[in-house]
Amino acid sequence: MERLPPFQVVLDRHSDEVWRVLRGMVGAQAAEDCFQETFLAALRAYPRLREGSNVRAWLLTIAHRKAIDHTRRRRHELPLEEEHEPAAPRAPEREIWSAVAQLPPRQRAAVVLRYGADLAHREVAELIGCSEEAARRSLHEGLKRMREEL
């Protein structure tokens, strides 16, 4: 018999982190829609999730996919950095948010997953679907670009 916990437990346990990763990847405003889409997709697929799966990695993979979809849809609409600012950031924070927002999607995902969710390089690679080497490179290029920006 399946021993998955009630979905509400998954929601309670992971909503903060999923929100923060989405906020980093698409900005606070768009994070709301991506968050709803992420958990709806997760709820639909949940009964088929195998016992003992890494629920956190599974959710972050879905969230990453939703963020990429969103970025593709919005590419020609709004400049990303405008959407990216949290409610009332203090000045140094605003600079960091702005620098994150200006990164290309792959580098932004690597930075957010590594520094916002503490994932190992291998986990980041699996999640965004590239080699570990490529994930490391994206992270370093992203950090370099941010330092130049700041």
């Binding site: 909503s15 999923v18 929100w19 923060r20 958990f39 949290p86």
Partner: peptide, 14 residues
């Protein structure tokens, strides 16, 4: 610290 800053909007969204 910036990327992980807690955000009350997460709970509301959940």
């Amino acid at each position: 610290a910036v990327l992980k800053e807690p955000d009350p909007r997460a709970g509301a969204a959940a």
